[in-house]
């Protein structure tokens, strides 16, 4: 064995860092008594995984999503995004991590009603460091990917629910995030639109994107390759 072999060896052997990793992360809200929205939890989501978090209303799903989406901080433990510790990160660093690593899909779509579909998608490129010259092309490509090339200049208000959610997915993936966080993505959709959005998630997953879907719907949850249940702030894997 040579020195070069030794130098090369650890890189090959080191497993890639999980995209999302909770290490004993908990979230407690002050009160009398304090509310334990999330009890200390460990969770690791590897690159390319499709994970669903399922749980009833009030189980702590939103708290978990806020922590994973860097919209909130754990009161104890650590959260690593792409191997980067975030518990002590400042607001600016967290915003930068959100911009570069996370794409959000919301239940209520949250598209800006006065902006065209294309402008809505372009929004996510503003903060993620996508060069100005590439933004439009990337946005058009993302819309093409979700099958909305024919709706580019439409306002979201004239789109169907399924189309709005697909536009929201295009916005979430346009900056090529490391993970897509979807909060009840089919909550406002009929069954047909839900199916088309879930098909889209399957396609994105097949393309190598890491997905984490939070839902109360077992059917939606069943589409993921790995499932986690949350109840009363406790997280547990579903075999």
């Amino acid at each position: 064995m040579t020195v070069l072999d030794l130098l090369d060896a650890p890189e090959r052997l080191e497993p890639p860092a999980p995209v999302l990793e909770l290490r004993g992360a908990a979230r407690q809200f002050p009160g009398d008594p304090p509310v334990h929205a999330l009890h200390p939890a460990d969770l690791a989501v590897a690159s390319g995984e499709y994970l669903s978090v399922v749980g009833p209303s009030g189980s702590g799903k939103s708290t978990l999503l806020n922590l994973l989406g860097l919209l909130d901080k754990p009161t104890e433990g650590e959260y690593l995004l792409d191997g980067i510790p975030t518990a002590g990160a400042g607001e600016r660093d967290r915003a930068a991590l959100r911009a570069g690593h996370i794409g959000f899909v919301f239940q209520a779509f949250h598209l800006m009603p006065h902006r065209t579909v294309l402008e809505n998608v372009l929004l996510a490129t503003l903060y993620s460091g996508v060069p100005r010259s590439e933004r439009r092309d990337r946005a058009l490509a993302a819309l093409d990917r979700v099958g909305l090339s024919h709706r580019v200049d439409f306002l979201p208000t004239v789109l169907s629910g399924g189309e709005r959610q697909r536009a929201a997915v295009a916005r979430a993936v346009v900056a090529q995030p490391r993970v897509l966080l979807a909060d009840e993505p089919t909550g406002n959709l009929d069954s047909e639109s839900s199916a088309s959005v879930l098909d889209l998630f399957d396609e994105l997953h097949a393309g190598g994107l890491t997905l984490l879907v939070i839902t109360h719907d077992d059917e939606v949850s069943a589409r993921a390759q790995r499932r986690v249940r949350i109840a009363d702030g406790y997280l547990r894997e579903i075999p």
Binding site: R92, A95, A96, R98, A99, L123, L126
Partner: peptide
């Protein structure tokens, strides 16, 4: 407010 929230969630800093 919602729009501002969306922008923040997509990485807009409070300064921005």
């Amino acid at each position: 407010i919602r729009e501002i929230g969306i922008r923040r969630s997509f990485g807009a800093t409070s300064g921005r």
